[in-house]
Amino acid sequence: MEVREKTAVVTGAASGIGRAVATALAARGARVMVADISSGVHDAGAEIGAAAWQGDVSAPDGIRDLLAAAEAQLGPVDLYFANAGIIGPPGLSGDEAEWDRAFDVNVRAHIRAAQQLIPGWQQRGEGYFVSTASAAGLLTQIGQAAYSVTKHAAIGFAEWLSVTYGDDGIRVSCLAPMGVNTPLLRGGETADSDADRTANRAVTSAGKVLEPADVADVVMAAVESETFLILPHPEVLEMYRMKGSDYDRWLRGMRRYQRTLAESAAH
């Protein structure tokens, strides 16, 4: 899809990948609304030259208000980047509210946005939904239960959208990076939890940590070519192939990797 003169909404856009994607969209001539629960979204909007909306995009009313604001200020939404995300409980100890919050932000926010967008896109015969998942959704992430589970679910939902609505002119892409230099990743370096710190090391030692602007360039190329799976780290595809070719061997390898990380932390 050509993004010039299209209306795009980007969630989780106060910083990181979301802000970089919004910047890239604006540079290519799109009308952009940035959304985030953080008040920093207003600074991001001012810097990018985009409209800004502050609120909770994981709540049904929040998404409804966001889309209404975007349409009122910029016109009908053509592209929606479901980018907001959180880590969630690292293991089995998280309570119901923590798990619900992870599912609300990382999965249900995508479902709720699609529920409101898809009917209109079907009528217009065009629309583009971009889901930010993670390599953790194709593989897994050591030390991060909720993040791994919800990112798997996000990829599953994006696949379903593409299969179900692709013949209606609706395009879907799913972003699955490894380490990106964002507040989400940097927060793991100084986390109180051993599991959180181990999870951070698992990501940073698995491959190069990319800058958000580099990821945004890959995202834009994928949207323009209408490619479903966006892999800023090409090595993820090889890891995914290895997983599929011998699942038990891959699980044994991941357990070895987990032990290695634990041993290095002990020293």
Rank of each mutant, 00 (worst) to 15 (best):
G49H: 10
A50D: 09
G85F: 04
G75K: 04
I37D: 03
A22I: 11
G45S: 12
G125I: 10
A72F: 05
Q123R: 09
A114F: 07
G120A: 07
D61I: 06
Y128M: 00
Q116T: 06
L66E: 07
Q73H: 13
Q73K: 15
G85L: 02
A26S: 14
D65V: 07
G88N: 04
D78M: 00
G127F: 01
A24F: 13
A82V: 03
L74Y: 14
V34C: 12
G40K: 04
Y80C: 13
R19V: 09
G127T: 01
G91Q: 07
S38P: 14
A20Y: 11
G49N: 13
L66Y: 12
A20F: 10
E96K: 02
S58T: 08
Q115N: 02
I86F: 05
P60W: 07
G88R: 04
E96C: 02
A30T: 05
G94K: 10
G62A: 03
R28P: 12
L92S: 03
A52N: 15
D100P: 06
Q73V: 15
I48M: 10
Y80D: 15
D56W: 07
A46F: 03
I37N: 03
A22K: 11
I118E: 01
L92F: 08
I111Q: 06
I111P: 00
P60M: 03
E47K: 13
P90S: 11
R124H: 00
L25I: 06
N83K: 02
E98R: 09
I37C: 08
A22W: 11
R64V: 02
R19W: 15
H110S: 12
A30N: 09
I86K: 06
V21P: 07
F81Q: 08
W53Q: 11
L67W: 13
R28E: 12
R101Y: 03
G75D: 13
A35R: 14
V41A: 14
G40M: 07
A69P: 15
A84E: 00
G49S: 09
E71N: 07
G127P: 00
R31P: 10
G91R: 11
A70Y: 15
A52M: 12
W121S: 01
A51L: 13
A27E: 09
Y128Q: 00
A26I: 12
V105A: 13
I87T: 03
A72Y: 08
A44Y: 10
S39G: 12
P90V: 13
R124S: 00
S93F: 06
L92R: 06
F103D: 03
R31G: 01
A72T: 15
Q54L: 03
L74W: 15
V32Y: 11
A114Y: 06
G88A: 08
I63P: 05
Q54E: 01
F103Y: 01
A27F: 09
S58F: 04
A20T: 13
G91P: 01
F103Q: 05
L25N: 04
I37V: 08
A82M: 01
P76G: 13
A82G: 01
G120T: 03
A72V: 04
